[in-house]
Write a protein that binds this DNA or RNA. Structure first.
Lengths: 200, 200, 200, 200
DNA sequence: AATGAATGAGTTTTCATTCAT
DNA sequence: AATGAATGAAAACTCATTCAT
């Protein structure tokens, strides 16, 4: 049952590594990074601390892996290139926004972690670096969309939409299920659609 | 020189307590809660740890006091009722938005702490309670402003503005000084002013 | 019984610090630096690890304090200027050699530590620096004595005596009490006295 | 390509074992015993830890093997019986001393390790045993030479020469290349030659 | 024979909290 | 009221050794 060949072994290690990241992520998200010890994680994934340290040099590397993972998940849903190929800019914006709301609803915890880490752990330089890169990428992509849409001030609008998306995430976390997520989504999307109509 | 009467003593203690809270807040905001030790705080306020523990039962109580304090500061700046008495709704919205940006620029750290605590420490029930109350109050006040402005969907708009404000705070923290804070402020304010003009 | 005034407290802390250093030294010397844990030391001095860390920032600082201590002890015994004032060079050489053997017998461990550190921990630059300075000083002083004695090659003789002293220390450590320390001492001293007689 | 017969296998294992010892020695000498991990050694000799453990029961056994090896190297150079067969005692003493200085110059690192281990690791009983045996052998051999030379106190003189040799090694390590190794060698050899002349 | 995954006890270090003075 | 010495539990991290494959 156990893997024999080298490739199988490597695959096995990769799978285990991902499992660790995903469990660590869950703990970081629910308890906070500083409240989660390596021992907690080791217990959760049912392996020894020593073995855990053969996968990650230190706690910070594990944190960064978790951030990579979470951001990949998030951006996969938002801006998967394949899905957007045949759409026009307005439709893409709609897709992006809807994608974001889907993440928010389906992976509330995960999303909370992004923001939590973005702010709380920002003092760890490597973490700040990772996150600000992702933010810049997202802003860049949104800006290009607005350029394609002929928006008069694409840079500003990109920043604004990015901020709105983040803010809604926070509000949703604070208000919980009483937050009118669906209505706000409609409203934002319509805003961009109307805008287009007005411009025409 | 020391206070003699009981009232003076109580006042003295209250003042000292506030001083501790304010310094603790500053440390929490700059270094993070988990990276700030009781010893650090004692050193900052130049008193012994033992004496500090006569003001607060434990570190968590000090955290809660700090959260109370910070939220009072923030709301004071945003929505001080007195200043707004004679203004019309549009002007109030402008004031609110400008007030928020002022907080953001002048007390970046403080603001960062609010969001940080809002999300990161939200798992502590008492903290979540306090924060969601404040958020609800703010949403309520914004909503009333939009009602006064005759906005077609005041609830939604209130949530949206609240989210935008929070999101800009996050972006500002992530991007740092390269974030075009002023331009975005203008843009948002103009948005609400234009809206009015269009509606008129 | 406990100290009240600030000076008493400071003196008390100083005494305790010295006690720690001396016990740590003993352990380092008998077990080796890397084989002695902070826990071992804490147990030896009957205080908690935490308290120990209020005296020394880390293990290396404790090591350096121990080296300082040991070198002070050793040089005090070998070449205390006061004792040697009224003696002629031959008598001083005798005193130096006897002083060295006294250190060796009374503080075997201590001496072992010097050599042990000289070689094994020499990779820590500050340690090597300190130790080579001491060695140079000793060689210089011996050389001056041989000059005063009219020795034909004082530099060589100083190096040789220094080496002999060190070597005897090592042999004594390896052979233990079966090593004929006293006979060798006589022999060396006589060697220098005979030398004088021959020259006359 | 692999060895087939049992003898070939045994030879192969022996060669590999020696290779491990030699590499381990190098690491111990440059980084220190406690700073060298089994993993480091395994990496250096390009085999797995498991296989390494089939050659040595534990780290201490490997250390002892390394000490054996290093001392054999050293004594081979000093006292190889064959070379000395036809010489008279004085010439042998000269050979011994010159042999020692050659080791010192050509294998400074190696020699440093001997002393380092002799003192620093002496607390490990098995190591102390090994080393003191070697020292006793050397002392015994020197003593016999002095007996053959008709020295009045051969035991003492043997200990003294042994000590001088060790001490010079230490001094050389501490002072580095500024140490007048050649002059001291001449001086010592001449001392024994003169002694002879005087006695005659 | 050979691998390296896996373990767990051990290491250094930190810090909230208590308490004798 | 005020101090800071003292504690001890817990954190991150290491490494000799074992064992399934």
């Amino acid at each position: 049952m156990s893997p024999r060949t080298e490739e199988q072994l490597a695959a096995h290690r990769k799978a285990k590594r991902e499992h660790i990241v995903s469990e660590a992520l869950h703990l970081f998200a629910t308890r906070g990074y500083f409240n989660t010890s390596i021992s907690d994680i080791a217990k959760e994934v049912k392996m020894s601390k020593g073995l855990l340290y053969s996968y990650f040099e230190n706690k910070e590397e594990l944190l960064n892996a978790a951030i990579d993972f979470v951001l990949k998940e998030a951006t996969d849903l938002n801006l998967s290139e394949d899905r957007l190929k045949d759409l026009n800019p307005e439709e893409i914006i709609r897709e992006v926004i809807e994608g974001f709301f889907t993440v928010l609803e389906e992976k509330k915890e995960l999303w909370g972690l992004i923001v939590s880490l973005a702010i709380h752990v920002a003092s760890i330089p490597s973490v700040h670096q990772t996150i600000s890169t992702i933010y810049k990428d997202l802003a860049q992509q949104l800006q290009e969309l607005f350029i394609a849409m002929g928006h008069p001030d694409p840079e500003n609008e990109a920043f604004k939409l990015g901020a709105l998306i983040d803010g809604i995430g926070i509000q949703y976390m604070v208000f919980g299920d009483s937050y009118p997520l669906k209505k706000i989504k409609e409203n934002i999307i319509n805003g961009y659609m109307n805008q287009k109509n007005e411009e025409q």
